[in-house]
Amino acid sequence: MGMPNRKYADGEVVMGRWPGSVLYYEVQVTSYDDASHLYTVKYKDGTELALKESDIRLQS
């Protein structure tokens, strides 16, 4: 078993793309699913969504 190939840690605050949009919002990573390679993130309004790594970026 190798290390999970994840870029962002639980609790890390990053920018997540809103689905169907080009806009990124501040989100907190809450979990990562090794099987689906999706991150569960929480937006400031409390919305929780699963995002692909390509829809997440570090805060500038």
Rank of each mutant, 00 (worst) to 15 (best):
V13C: 10
Y25C: 13
D34I: 06
Y32S: 00
D45W: 09
V14T: 02
S36A: 10
G20W: 05
D45Y: 03
E12M: 15
V27E: 00
S36K: 12
K7N: 05
I56P: 01
Y8S: 01
R17S: 03
S31C: 07
Q59D: 12
L49I: 13
T30W: 07
T30S: 09
W18N: 04
A50N: 13
Q59H: 14
K52T: 14
W18F: 12
Y24A: 02
L51R: 01
M3W: 11
P4Y: 07
G16Q: 02
G46F: 04
G2D: 15
D55S: 05
M3Y: 14
E53P: 06
R6H: 05
V13F: 13
S36L: 13
T40H: 11
E48C: 11
D55H: 07
S31P: 00
H37I: 03
S54C: 12
K42W: 06
V27A: 12
V22C: 15
Y43C: 13
G2W: 04
V27H: 00
V22T: 14
I56E: 00
A50H: 14
Y8R: 01
W18C: 11
G16W: 03
V29M: 00
Y32I: 01
T47G: 04
S21C: 09
R57W: 10
L58Y: 14
S54P: 05
L38H: 08
M15Q: 08
D45I: 03
T40F: 10
D45P: 01
P19F: 05
Y39I: 02
R57Q: 11
L23R: 12
S21F: 04
M1D: 15
T30Y: 07
W18L: 11
R6S: 03
T40W: 13
S21I: 02
E53V: 06
T47S: 09
A35H: 11
Y39N: 01
R57L: 10
M1P: 15
S54T: 12
S36C: 09
D55I: 01
Y8F: 13
S31V: 03
V22F: 12
V22H: 14
G11V: 01
E53R: 02
A35S: 12
M1H: 15
Y24M: 06
R57P: 02
E53F: 04
K42T: 11
G46M: 03
I56M: 11
Y32D: 00
E53Y: 04
V14L: 07
V41L: 04
M15T: 04
G46Q: 04
D33H: 05
L23A: 10
H37E: 15
G16R: 01
M1F: 03
D33P: 00
Y32T: 00
K42E: 07
D34N: 08
G20M: 06
P19T: 03
H37Q: 15
R6D: 02
K52Q: 12
V41T: 03
K44P: 12
Y24S: 02
Q28F: 08
